[in-house]
Design a protein around this nucleic acid. Structure first.
Lengths: 183, 183
DNA sequence: AGCAAGGGAGAACGTGCGTTCTCCACGTGG
DNA sequence: CCACGTGGAGAACGCACGTTCTCCCTTGCT
């Protein structure tokens, strides 16, 4: 097995376990067991657990925003694209392994301790917010709408994570529609 | 020192440390050092760390909702009471030791592992949501407003926690005002 | 064949921490 | 004055886990 595939398998296992059970409760040995990558190899690829965590968050960030963008871009109408964000959230919340927002959870777990994790969480949320801003601008709407839409999205993620329901996405979508209609 | 004051001192230290640094990174010995309550006494009062965590979350829940309610109730106008929630959030976010919502953070840290913690988080959020619902009802507004207002509040808590800014409260207040005006 | 390099399995090491135990000082009732 | 219970300080214990090390096998090259 070459380094590239070992790295991918390690990250696959890390993502599944870190996201599903939390970062601190997953040991390097769990990653080894789930990935089939030996400890020696793991430590060659990621010299410490923290770097595996960072790689996990980074790869998930790229994929998460990619999935969102490709869903939203299937919608042509710029106004509806904004609402499509909430439709996608609803799909995400409904996935069997959904356990809330990985970055919000990681921040709760490690934000107070690891500045690098905190930075990654801030970067991810800033990127998401910037993406929302681009959709708002694309619809020719005032930038002041971005903040509220972002807060609705964040609120729905955290609430869906805690309650396990997809309903917050629908509520947020409805509120977003109302905000868009008001101005 | 009698049991009651020892218990309070232990909980004071636990709250300060758990909230400030996260639960898992605070040891029982840290609690002993910060509270002046010996380990022996700590384990008499709370037979395991998990029970100290539960007591911490429970006491904080009572105090948090009490502070919110007493702030809101200073406002007489039922419509403005709804907005007062967001004013209070802004004050809270501005406190020097503010580090996000204790329950959201705890859920990220332990929600996947401890069903009791997860239950307490859900109970706290449900109570907060019910309180918002009572304010909406008190203003004679449709119950459908509760969900969006709750999501705005949750989004502002999580965002203020991550970014360290009070601005999300003002954005959420403005969005809430807009939603209230729309219907 | 012989051998160096790399990799796997898993033991070993060090540390942190939840929990319990030991030892001792102190106060109180006989 | 003495037995005794309470409580404090902190050592001790057990375990989990991050990280490293040992041992052995495979593989590819000469």
């Amino acid at each position: 097995m070459d380094s590239a595939t070992a790295r991918e398998q390690a990250l696959d296992a890390a993502e599944k376990l870190f996201y599903g059970r939390g970062i601190q409760s997953v040991g390097m040995d769990d990653i080894r067991g789930a990935s089939g990558v030996s400890l020696k190899r793991l430590y060659q690829l990621f010299p410490a657990k923290e770097q595996l965590v960072e790689a996990y968050l980074e790869r998930r960030d790229v994929r998460w925003r990619g999935r969102l963008a490709s869903y939203v871009e299937r919608e042509a109408d710029p106004e509806l694209r904004i609402l499509a964000v909430f439709d996608w959230l609803q799909e995400w919340f409904g996935e069997a392994d959904f356990r809330g927002c990985a970055w919000i959870n990681s921040y709760g777990e490690l934000g107070a301790r690891s500045e690098r994790v905190a930075d990654q969480v801030r970067a991810h949320k800033r990127a998401f917010r910037d993406y929302l801003a681009s959709l708002v601008a694309g619809a020719g709407r005032p930038d002041a709408l971005t903040g509220p839409l972002f807060l609705l999205a964040e609120g729905s993620m955290v609430t869906a994570g805690i309650t396990g329901s997809t309903r917050p996405a629908a509520e947020a979508r409805e509120a977003a529609r109302s905000l868009l209609a008001a101005r």
